Structures are given as C-alpha cells and as structure tokens.
Simulated assay, not measured.
Amino acid sequence: MEKLKEYAAVCTVGSVGYSAIEVLWRGFTHWTMALTGGVGFLLLYLTDLRMTGRSMLQKCAAGSLVLTAVEFVAGCIINRGCRLGVWDYSRRKGNLLGQICPLYSALWFLLCIPVLPLSRALRERLCQGGSGRRIETA
C-alpha cells in the first residue's frame, strides 16, 4: 500500500508539473498530457532509482529515451488511434510517424537535468516514515 501511495504522489507531481511546463511552452495543454506527464515522471523516478551510482549524463540519456518512448506510445494512442491531434511533428526532421523527433528527444534530455534531482528530493520526502526513518524504495 505504501508503494501505491508513493507512485500516486509521483504521478500527481508529474501530471501537474508537465501540464504547467506545456502551458509555459505552448500556451495551452490537453488533459491527455496530464496523464502522459504523470506516467513519464513515474518512469523517470523509477529510472533514477535503478541508476543509482550512474553519472548524470547517463541518467539524462536514459531519461530522454524513456520520455521519447512514452511520447511515442502516447502519440500513437492519442493522436493516431483516438485522432485527437494533440501534437504533430510530421514536419520536423527525423520524425517517426509524426509522434517523436530528435529535437524533442534532445529537449527531454535537457529537461532531465532539473527533473532528476527533483525526483530524488521527492523520493527522500516520500520515503520518510512518520518516525523519520527511511522506508525501503526498491
């Protein structure tokens, strides 16, 4: 039950955070991006946990791959399957089905620089029991 609460909190932070970033970047967002942001942040959170001891460069590269994969899957469902047209990268160089492109993969890498330390700080906060002792996260 503790893991479920932890993961729900992480998803909520990712959902709100990504929606805010998108509003700042594009001027608007879509409700599906809140879901996608929550899933993406949870996967980044877990990636950071699994990569303890690795360099920030390695973690950002892994984070970029994870977020690009989330964007591709979400795009295939949201844009292609449901035909909602939330985003379209088909005019971007190197795009795959208009859902992902190298430019945004590079931006995901850069976004990981501040987000991964946020993930660690959130984990530290969430993994403190009421008594102040650490709760296992793995």
Rank of each mutant, 00 (worst) to 15 (best):
26 R>S: 14
28 F>C: 11
28 F>G: 05
29 T>R: 02
29 T>I: 03
31 W>P: 12
32 T>E: 00
34 A>K: 02
34 A>C: 05
36 T>H: 00
37 G>C: 05
38 G>V: 04
39 V>K: 07
39 V>T: 09
41 F>W: 04
42 L>A: 05
46 L>E: 15
46 L>D: 10
49 L>Q: 09
50 R>L: 02
51 M>H: 05
52 T>L: 12
53 G>D: 01
53 G>P: 01
54 R>W: 13
54 R>K: 15
55 S>W: 06
55 S>P: 10
56 M>Q: 14
56 M>D: 10
58 Q>H: 06
58 Q>D: 05
59 K>E: 14
60 C>E: 09
60 C>N: 11
61 A>K: 07
62 A>E: 08
66 V>Y: 07
68 T>V: 04
69 A>P: 06
70 V>A: 12
71 E>M: 11
73 V>F: 04
74 A>S: 15
78 I>V: 14
79 N>V: 08
82 C>L: 15
85 G>H: 10
87 W>M: 07
87 W>N: 11
88 D>Y: 03
95 N>I: 12
98 G>P: 11
100 I>N: 07
100 I>G: 09
102 P>E: 13
103 L>Q: 15
104 Y>N: 15
105 S>D: 11
108 W>G: 01
109 F>C: 03
110 L>K: 03
110 L>A: 11
110 L>R: 00
111 L>I: 10
111 L>Y: 10
113 I>L: 15
113 I>D: 00
113 I>E: 04
114 P>F: 06
116 L>W: 01
118 L>S: 11
123 R>Y: 10
